[in-house]
Amino acid sequence: MNIVGNLEAVGNFLTSGAFSTINISSSTYAANYPLGPAAEIEMPAIDFNSASSSSFKNLAVNVYTANQFEDLLSDNEDVVLGQGITYVVGNTRISEVNNLTVPGALVIEGDLLINEDEVNINITHSAGQPSGLLATNKIDFDGDVGNIDIQGIIYAANLVNINNLDNSGTFNVLGGIVGRKVTIEGVSRTVNIIHDNQILVDVLKATEFSPVILVDHWEEEY
């Protein structure tokens, strides 16, 4: 794994496994490291579905139920979503599609599971607009997924799990990862996470911090 910027955890940062390697371009802050833990901050809040005109649901260019969205994927080998925010209500699995292009943000009201062989996901960012994968609960990448290239953030109000990925694809995030707990386990490919504060600002709000990942507890195992 390669991280451009700081890695900051308010708890411990743990790695295990003979082939576990992490490269951090700047500093590591954790309870079990010499610099000590990172200062606690509140997890950046996102207005997913309030009545406000600025909530993600009300700003969405398309709103689907989980069944409608999964049918869209299963009926097409290559899917390009509309420019802007696509909002899906219900636990959602991305499968039965070869290539999914998201010119903006894919927002899930519930859990998001990505575990289909050879599913390629490409998310692009436009200045001033939100982009990435976001979920009100958890996001799971699990199994032999294809190429994952995200200009945006991976945001889960609860858990982000990146597990059991083979070494045949890419996993690149330009922006950051935000979650209550982030676990990376059994990953054979290189994971690149590059901090981009402007993308964070476009999705969240102006931030004073500059770490790539803010987590309470981090476990990495190969």
Rank of each mutant, 00 (worst) to 15 (best):
M1D: 12
I3V: 15
E8T: 08
V10S: 15
V10A: 14
G11N: 08
G11V: 06
N12A: 08
N12K: 07
N12C: 05
S16F: 08
A18Q: 12
F19G: 13
F19P: 00
I22F: 06
S26C: 05
T28N: 04
Y29C: 05
A31W: 05
N32A: 02
Y33N: 10
Y33L: 07
L35N: 08
P37H: 13
P37D: 14
A38S: 14
A39K: 06
E40R: 10
I41R: 12
E42A: 15
E42F: 14
E42S: 14
P44K: 02
I46L: 14
N49K: 14
S50H: 04
S53A: 14
N62D: 15
N62K: 14
N62R: 13
T65V: 11
A66Y: 03
S74L: 12
N76C: 10
N76A: 11
E77Q: 13
D78A: 04
V80Q: 06
V80C: 03
I85V: 14
I85Q: 03
Y87R: 08
Y87P: 09
V89N: 15
G90I: 07
N91Q: 09
I94N: 03
S95D: 15
S95T: 13
V97F: 01
L100S: 07
V102Y: 04
P103D: 03
L106T: 09
V107H: 02
D111R: 15
N115Q: 08
E116V: 02
E118W: 06
T124Y: 00
H125T: 03
A127W: 02
G128K: 01
S131L: 02
L133E: 00
L133G: 01
L134P: 00
I139N: 10
D140T: 15
F141Q: 08
D144W: 14
I148Y: 04
I150V: 02
Q151K: 11
G152W: 05
G152R: 06
I153D: 03
A156D: 01
N161Y: 10
N164L: 05
D166A: 15
D166I: 08
D166G: 15
N172F: 10
N172R: 11
V173E: 04
L174W: 05
G176I: 03
G176N: 03
G176M: 00
I177M: 00
V178M: 09
R180D: 12
K181Y: 00
T183L: 06
I184G: 01
E185W: 11
V187K: 05
I193E: 00
I194V: 14
H195A: 12
H195C: 05
N197C: 04
Q198T: 13
I199H: 04
L200G: 08
D202C: 06
V203A: 10
L204P: 04
L204Q: 03
A206Y: 12
F209R: 10
F209K: 13
S210L: 11
P211R: 11
I213N: 02
V215A: 08
E219N: 08
E220T: 06
Y222P: 00
Y222D: 12
